[in-house]
């Protein structure tokens, strides 16, 4: 039981961080990015390709994350550009359809060019005891990196002027515009940031389990569920929901098998949406 909970927390931390990227894009720009998981996969594949070319893991990982961020920026400048002339639900709907197209393009391209390729960062060394349970070093390192990244994100949004500017746009776009903040610039920043987050999560995830070319859709779905349960647009909600769902998933998986645990997770998400459409910590509009 303790082992399952710890595994769940490891997974939950990562999905919490992953979901913050999705929730920021939605909260700030009304963009529901279904290509999010594919952005993570691109980072993973770039990293493993560079490592195969002979570079050490740290610079390869840094380049992988940078490519993820760059992909976010490119999407903002190209495919998502026509979205910004739309408002409200129309924008969300079109963003969903366009990003689905992007997801298919990336999936098809990667599966065609690198079938069977996947990133698996193996962290050597023996297990370390945590609360009497042996934990793999890879899981601990992944969790450590994730927690540091989360801390960095929270600090960025709480203490820096830029982070506060982003939050002000989420709260009231018109108000932010009036005090001289350009929402488009903030959105560009967030797409860059979320691409980087997706890349980082792909790397930490690969320390626990391989991330291969077909993983994109699964990552997107998980991030979407966590985001919706946590409340679209809420960063703390995403982090909390990630950990809660991660633990539920791990306990259910060890008790009744993978597929049925996913069913439980999905039903839990559906119930949350129906009981509290704004999510656990979301604010009703």
């Amino acid at each position: 039981m303790t082992a399952s909970i710890l595994d769940g927390i490891v997974l939950g931390l990562q999905f919490g961080l992953l979901a913050t990227g999705l929730t920021l894009m939605y909260g700030l720009g009304g963009i529901l990015n279904l290509a999010y998981g594919q952005m993570a996969v691109v980072s993973a594949i770039v990293t493993v390709s560079i490592m195969e070319a002979g570079l050490p893991v740290v610079p390869a990982a840094a380049i992988g994350i940078a490519v993820g961020a760059l992909l976010g920026f490119v999407l903002d400048q190209t495919v998502f550009r026509p979205l910004y002339s739309l408002r409200g639900e129309a924008r969300v709907l079109l963003s969903l359809l366009l990003s689905l197209g992007v997801a298919l393009m990336i999936d098809g391209f990667l599966n065609w060019l690198f079938p069977l390729k996947g990133l698996s960062l193996f962290i050597g060394g023996g297990a370390i005891d945590v609360f009497g349970e042996p934990m793999r070093r890879g899981s601990l390192l992944a969790s450590g990196i994730t927690i540091v990244a989360m801390g960095g994100l929270v600090a960025f949004f709480r203490f820096t002027t830029l982070g506060r500017a982003v939050r002000s746009v989420i709260e009231d776009e018109e108000g932010a515009r009036l005090v001289g903040i350009d929402p488009r610039k903030m959105l560009r920043l967030i797409l860059l940031l979320s691409g980087g987050i997706a890349g980082l999560v792909a790397l930490t995830r690969s320390m626990v389990a391989p991330v291969d070319v077909t993983a994109g859709f699964g990552i997107t779905v998980f991030a979407l569920i966590v985001t919706v349960v946590g409340g679209l647009g809420s960063i703390t909600g995403a982090l909390a929901a990630g950990i809660i769902l991660g633990v539920i998933n791990a306990i259910a998986a060890s008790a009744i098998g993978t597929f049925m645990s996913l069913v439980i997770l999905l039903v839990a998400a559906a119930v949350t949406i129906l009981v509290r459409p704004a999510g656990l910590l979301g604010v009703k509009e």
Binding site: L100, G101, V102, M105, I106, D107, G108, W112
Partner: peptide
């Protein structure tokens, strides 16, 4: 083969 998925994606967009 797999490029078909890529073409579908481009068509959707």
């Amino acid at each position: 083969g797999q490029l078909r998925v890529f073409i579908y994606g481009a068509l959707v967009i």
